[in-house]
Design a binder for these strands. Structure first.
Lengths: 235, 235
DNA sequence: TACCAAGGTAGACATCTGTATACTCGTCGG
DNA sequence: CCGACGAGTATACAGATGTCTACCTTGGTA
């Protein structure tokens, strides 16, 4: 046994992944997203779907849980950086005024935050479009059976939220008087909610545009509410 | 076979529930909340935990899914009415001014909404305290394997949100200029988030007070944000 | 050339699961 | 008093699952 998905920490996918491993992960995406929990598919069904011998599974993973971890790490690394980059770009692009379409509320430049938020949310949903299966599994497993997967996904969302909070501060998307812990809490909630909505998004294709709009709206509500309440000293 | 949990619609628990049925449901709460998904416990393990013969299961339920439905219906009916009643009381109690502790923001009486919200949230978490196992299972199964359970739970949360939106309107907790669909969407999000947080609440006993506070805060942020943005015409 | 490890296969094992049929027992209505 | 019925039990079976040991194949390398 060499690499049951736990080598030296990890060079980010230095192995082009043995064909079997990839086949198994793809099979897991297909089956796991189509109804049941990952654990309940079972190693054997997984191998069957992948067109492989059950024992081949052991060459690459020690558990179904282990497979799950691999999938999670995959999408997490694919999502995190692009999202940060886009947020930076969006913030930069939105620096030049929006022509004052929206009034400033108690000194808060709503227009800028709104545009950054709009773009971020849309990139997120674009990513959901491309990785629907992984998202279904992810959100399922977030409250699922395995504590290990839960913890891993929690961490992903926590990082996601932390990035967001940091960017909000760095690009000054909120008035500085909003305390940092508040920003973090709001970010956490936004993150959580976006992941949640990704399931609606996937499950109701005919409402996709509406859901994107609602998501933007909700994020705006939250940050605005936080700003206003803090401004009048009612945190 | 007489009552596999699908009789005439339902008189609300006219049967005091055969002892076996109750034992099985309690066993399901214990096992289902302690790690895996309901479906993955399996009828046999369930019966074992309940100290009964596997076949006894069939006398009361046709499926594990069926058992799940019964549990969901139970807690749903236990939660809904009390919550509405409390909200009405809270709203009535909060009619007499709060002494102007908080300034009115653009004509919005924040103090009243805040108090009602505070009490509602706390009642909710008290209920979570008393039914922790059911909540764990509920939130798990919300994104779980079975479409039937998912749909049932969605409905529960939808009702929960609808009640909330209606009460907000009826007790005038928000300025009337906030459009009804917006209230509904915000309510839906709040509802979803509360259920979500109930898991944190259960899982991190040492942070319970903090979580309650955060929940109240988030609800306030949302409704405030919605009010403000609507007020300045930026919905 | 010989070797060796990684990737993949084959068959066998005990174990668990859902389900079907058939039995027991207490209670209640006629 | 008796039969029917609800609740619970016993046994049995086919199928699936995780895992073990052993074997084959390939590509690189000493």
């Amino acid at each position: 046994m060499k690499s049951v998905s736990g080598d030296e920490p990890q060079s980010p996918e230095r192995t082009p992944d043995a064909p079997g491993k990839r086949l198994l992960m793809e099979a897991a995406l297909r089956l796991g997203s189509q109804s049941r929990s990952l654990a309940s598919v079972g190693l054997r069904e997984l191998a069957r779907e992948a067109g492989l011998n059950p024992n081949t599974f052991y060459r690459h993973f020690k558990d179904v849980e282990d497979l799950g971890l691999a999938i999670i790490r995959n999408i997490a690394t694919q999502l995190r950086q692009p999202l940060r980059d886009l947020r930076r770009e969006a913030a930069a692009r939105a620096v030049q005024g929006d022509g004052g379409l929206l009034p400033k509320l108690m000194g808060i430049d709503l227009g800028r935050g709104r545009r950054v938020c709009h773009e971020t949310v849309h990139l997120f949903f674009d990513f959901v479009d491309d990785n629907a299966e992984a998202f279904v599994i992810g959100v399922r497993e977030l409250h699922g059976a395995s504590p290990v997967l839960r913890e891993a996904l929690r961490e992903v969302m926590e990082d996601f939220a932390a990035d967001m909070a940091e960017d909000v501060r760095e690009y000054k998307l909120l008035p500085t008087l909003v305390a940092e812990p508040v920003v973090r809490r709001v970010s956490r909630l936004v993150s959580r909610n976006l992941f949640q909505m990704s399931l609606d998004y996937i499950g109701e294709p005919e409402r996709r545009e509406a859901i994107r709009a609602e998501a933007v709206e909700q994020v705006l509500f939250l940050f605005t509410g936080a700003s206003v309440l803090q401004a009048i000293g009612a945190v």
